[in-house]
């Protein structure tokens, strides 16, 4: 059977929630294992002392990208059925800035604050409370921002389409960018990291 399994009806909506829970637990597990339950480690990337967030996230992107490409190429995955959230350029830039400010101020992003709360960190709970309040507030005020929320729509925007590049070339360039990024990150860490060896796992 071809992936995506849910789209091709391998399991129904109820079972999909169970699958989502399992994937969510896996996601949380790996965030915790990467050390992302600690706001100090997360904030360290903004001081270039520990760039593991960048490295983990870019690794995830490259792994997913190569997986989607090669599974489609082998005919195991129907890429056109993979959900791609629609792009709304300006609202999403504003949203990204709000996200970034929240990340710098609180030391967590939405996923990692859940991990921090689950591992009993108080600052994680505070952040989680702030996030849920924000979601509620946004929901209540949605009718006021709806016009802006749906402005500058670009539909299903992917890099090969936007850059008008062949798929394979885009993949190659992103992999190259990632490998260069990893090398640069290690170099930056070497330059900025404190001399005391505290950067274990």
């Amino acid at each position: 059977m071809n992936a995506p399994f849910y789209k091709f009806g391998l399991f129904g909506e109820d079972a999909s929630l169970v699958v989502a829970l399992l994937i969510g637990i896996g996601f949380g597990f790996f965030l915790e294992r990467a050390g992302f339950g600690s706001a100090r480690k997360l904030a360290a990337q903004f001081y270039f002392t520990d760039l593991r967030v960048f490295k983990v996230m870019f690794t995830a992107i490259v792994t997913a990208m190569l997986g989607v490409f090669w599974l489609s190429w082998l005919g195991l995955l129907d890429y056109t059925q993979v959900a791609v959230p629609s792009t709304y350029l300006i609202p999403q830039i504003v949203g990204g800035l709000v996200f970034g400010i929240g990340f710098v101020m609180g030391g967590y992003c939405p996923g990692t604050c859940c991990v921090a709360a689950a591992t009993g960190r108080l600052d994680g709970f505070v952040h989680l409370f702030g996030m849920i309040s924000g979601i509620l507030l946004f929901g209540e005020l949605f009718s006021f921002v709806e016009g802006f929320y749906h402005s500058t729509p670009m539909g299903r925007a992917t890099l090969p389409d936007l850059l008008q590049l062949p798929f394979g070339l885009t993949i190659f360039l992103i992999v190259l960018l990632a490998l260069a990024g990893f090398a640069a990150a290690e170099w930056l860490e070497g330059k900025f990291a404190p001399s005391t060896e505290e950067a274990g796992s």
Partner: peptide, 10 residues
């Protein structure tokens, strides 16, 4: 990534 260059469109 290099192989993807020559794999063509999926």
């Amino acid at each position: 990534g290099v192989l993807a260059l020559f794999a063509g469109s999926p």
